[in-house]
Design a protein around this nucleic acid. Structure first.
Lengths: 192, 192, 192, 192
DNA sequence: CATGAATGAGCTTTCATTCAT
DNA sequence: TATGAATGAAAGCTCATTCAT
């Protein structure tokens, strides 16, 4: 049991240094040797926990994606009224993207790279199902526009990625007021 | 003295193969040797036209960004009515992102990478000024929400990147009808 | 935990092949790949033992310089009479330069190159101190000319480098008799 | 004629930049492209004047060697008394080595490198003949030690190279007095 | 499970030289 | 004669991964 714990620690340390190095240097220039050094293990040890570099990054991607969606649906229940529910989820996500910047930034780097397997992406998407269900309900109730969930997601949710980027680059900081404005824009874009 | 001159042709071939290789394999695994081979020149020739790999990629980024914005403002004139003008620009951009997929995809890969210098990014942004001016006018006329241009851009424009990605991944194809729906969402998100 | 340790053997093999290649081909045309091949290791292995090429060469320089001075003062003790002591040291050095030709030749190549750091040179010089001390004593005893140690070294010691070169180039071979003549010249140049 | 002159100018510019670059950076890191740039010509132009890099360096070596020996025998005539003659030549050489430091330093770099062809070396040596003749005369007159001219040269002349190095490295500066001391050492080493 | 040494393949970049004008 | 573009070959070095313990 103690050994298992220690192993988990090492695995986490590896994921953490990968996150940090990729964020700071990009997928290129995040070599296994540096990842190992940062996690205080030998390069060879990485291969005990992960098949190869691609696997390491994909596993990290998946873990983050899961923790992201977990947070997205925190306190959410399926019988909340549609707008209230969306509001809750939206602010949850905004919270994640604007506060857990490192994690969110890594995920956004993954959006447009060939490093992530299509399988991981599919798996990552699954966890968003409750949001899609909510929208389906909203459509039936005549509250949400009757359009593809991809469009809904692009406008209502994904726009936050751009705002996170501007914030991370110190171009623009979102305070409470502008966050509310962003929510209003999100809601306007999808509501009927 | 008549000597061989640096050929625009070779430079363009290099930029083109860079685009193609980065798109297919990512910034990692787009080695100079392959870029050279694909452009039918010697590896050493690249360094006549570009300082190094980073420079090559940044120059490509800038050229695409400029051609992108050129297309965005095609047929646009500053005295068009706000909504008409926005509609024109939006469809121009959609056209670019959904038809010139290769170029758009490359640009979206650049959004979240450390390969692009902050200077290049700034330079690339400059060319969007007319859109910001338009929004400013829209605000004065009471048509556009009085919120940060970053938020406006995130919702009205950047959402298209996500839709382009889904399309490129064959998850979802935008036909004329869904494109109009997307425009409606964009417009709803920023109009008062 | 028992793991493979950096082997002195490999390091020595690398230093040896460097010596040999630089001697035969010069600092230019002694590429890392050849050095590795000659030492029967992978090119990458060199970088486990040395930071880079410059470091490799500087370390080799220092090791040889140290072994050179060690031999120079073999059997020397500070309370020998000045002339006897000088004679001992001079013949020690002559022995080294004329018998360990490879090492001496490498060192003489280092005398006039920018490959060797000033720091390494300084470090290398340190070990000659006993000779300088001897000369100081000789001056006090009125045996050695009261002139700068640089001049003393230039005449009494460094002249051997030229003789080594002629020998290495097969222009002139020093037998016992001519060696004694050389010693006489050395001694005459510095004695009062 | 004018064209010939201009050509000579270019050739000299090339030799000069070679001298300067090799002195500052070593034989390694004195690339043809830099040499060309420094001489304000195209890299291709070098190959009009010189066969290849090796030839360029060997020609430079020879020119310097000749100018060196010319200066060595300035004002010398074969019927001067031996000591006076030697004194003249020695100070001529010292003058060259300590004042035309750049040229002397280049030559000393050539002493121990494989870049110089044996043929060039032989050719360079030839010009020293008058000194060897002088020593021969000195031996007959019972003034100079009856030993190999190689030994004589090593002590009487070549020691100056070491002193030049110390001076170039700012370890030791030779003033008039120490120069005279050096001459005394030189003379003592070879006189009977 | 864990390691530091070791590596072949491959990276970016540079070089001496030649080409085409 | 003189050029800047062009290049094949090779340089120094790094990397993901494996080996031996």
């Amino acid at each position: 049991m103690a050994i298992r714990e220690k192993s988990k620690e090492k695995r986490n340390a590896l994921l953490k240094s990968t996150l940090s190095l990729v964020n700071n240097n990009g997928f290129h220039d995040a070599p296994m040797s540096k990842i190992a050094k940062m996690a205080n293990v030998s390069p060879a040890t990485i291969y005990i926990y992960f098949e190869n570099k691609r696997d390491l990054i994909n596993q990290l991607y998946l873990e983050l994606k899961i923790s992201y969606t977990e947070q997205a649906f925190k306190a959410y229940s399926e019988n909340m009224p549609v707008k209230k529910a969306f509001e809750l989820i939206w602010y949850n996500i905004a919270d994640y993207k604007l506060k857990q910047v490192e994690e969110a930034w890594f995920l956004s780097q993954c959006d447009n790279t060939t490093m992530i397997d299509e399988a991981s992406r599919q798996e990552g998407l699954k966890h968003l199902q409750p949001l899609l269900d909510l929208w389906e309900r909203g459509k039936k109730e005549g509250i949400i526009k009757n359009i593809s969930p991809y469009i809904l997601y692009a406008y209502a949710i994904n726009s936050l990625v751009f705002l996170m980027n501007t914030q991370k680059r110190n171009l623009y900081q979102l305070d409470k007021k502008s966050l509310d404005q962003a929510f209003q824009a999100a809601w306007d874009s999808i509501r009927i």
